[in-house]
Design a protein around this nucleic acid. Sequence first.
DNA 1: GACTTTAGTCGCAAAAAGTGACTAATTCGC
DNA 2: GCGAATTAGTCACTTTTTGCGACTAAAGTC
Lengths: 223, 223
Amino acid sequence: MRERPSRTSPYTVDVVLVTAMGNELAILLTRGSTDRERWALPWRAAQVGETLGTASARVAEDALGDPPIWAEQIGAFGDAKRHPSEVEISVAFVGLVPHRTASPITGYTWFPMRDLPPLSPRQRAIVEAATRTIQSRLDQAPIAFRLLPPTFTLSELQQMYELLLGKRLHKASFRRALQGAWLVEPTDEWRNEGRGRPAQLYRYSPKKRRRPHRGVRFDFLYP
Amino acid sequence: MRERPSRTSPYTVDVVLVTAMGNELAILLTRGSTDRERWALPWRAAQVGETLGTASARVAEDALGDPPIWAEQIGAFGDAKRHPSEVEISVAFVGLVPHRTASPITGYTWFPMRDLPPLSPRQRAIVEAATRTIQSRLDQAPIAFRLLPPTFTLSELQQMYELLLGKRLHKASFRRALQGAWLVEPTDEWRNEGRGRPAQLYRYSPKKRRRPHRGVRFDFLYP
DNA sequence: GACTTTAGTCGCAAAAAGTGACTAATTCGC
DNA sequence: GCGAATTAGTCACTTTTTGCGACTAAAGTC
């Protein structure tokens, strides 16, 4: 029970699987294997000869049946914060899952980010880092597209950005910026939602474009 | 020699200490403790009960006498790439060092980034990730300021940004953006460099400002 | 058929960014 | 001492980008 490294494995790989449920982000949790009362992020002990990436893919597969569409390492977490495995450090990943494919295997449950059950201190820190990673990568990688199904309406895309950014966006500006970025292409399908004009479906299909010719950005507020 | 975890420690902490030397970035290397022919990043085996952050600070202290002014975790590296320690994974950090304070202890040498000696595959990957981390954080954290001495001229600051971005910037635009960001404050000192008009010295001193009221950015070119 | 709801577009005004030319203060060569 | 060279710092103009309100379009509802 003291801070003694486990004999079986030097570290764990923990995965924050994120999806969009309705108007909120949600992550996948499971009952802890050691403490059955407590919820925990899906994790596995490192296997010899397995890369970090494949380890995280397997954790996701065990939980969902498929590897996530997109995953990225968040970092290593130790700092004396306890972990279900009592192992010294954990390497954490975020994985993005479109909600269509998000039917978890028995024992796993989606929890809205705003209302998580108690987690171990280390896993709590991992979840917080995951949201920061997502926020900061949002303009550098197609996060929002990975949380949507393969085809989507522009309103759905905008709502996803609004959810991730935590603020409203102006429709015309959003579409103009999107057009300038050459990221989507229209399909010839339209979706009729019941009320209102039908919306055209688009797919993510980034085109070559010249890198914008910008100067510096001082976008940080504090050190 | 096979992929067998070391008995003594489950992982290492490796640090990429970056400074600006003249017109180039440079990193600190040392002769490997196992292989004396090969250069290596400074590293140490993890100690029980030590946080990742303090471990990286100690690695830097051993090399420079002081901890770096600013450090950030890059991530965990494993992936079957060999490391001097033959340990399974390494947790890597970048540390920024203003060149004034950059006199290394015997056994350590600054190497320009463009002309590094052969490193182990894993440490090579760590250095590449460090440059990507620096580039991507450049507009989100005061990287450039951390590589300069406490007071500096605006031309020096601009040159540092040009070095980090790898492109020239227009003087007037750079200064206008800097002014809008409320990041520096003038001192009452001036530096006379020999030829040309003396330049006023500034210090990094970020002021409160309202978060810019911007929409979305689609700044990625490819998935 | 009028009203509501959602999709999609237009065009103006304001803000931000690119750029060349200008002024200022110093050293160097003569 | 004086003009050329060099570096700092600013200005004013143009172009680009962005915010935003108002508009048209196509469906359902009553």
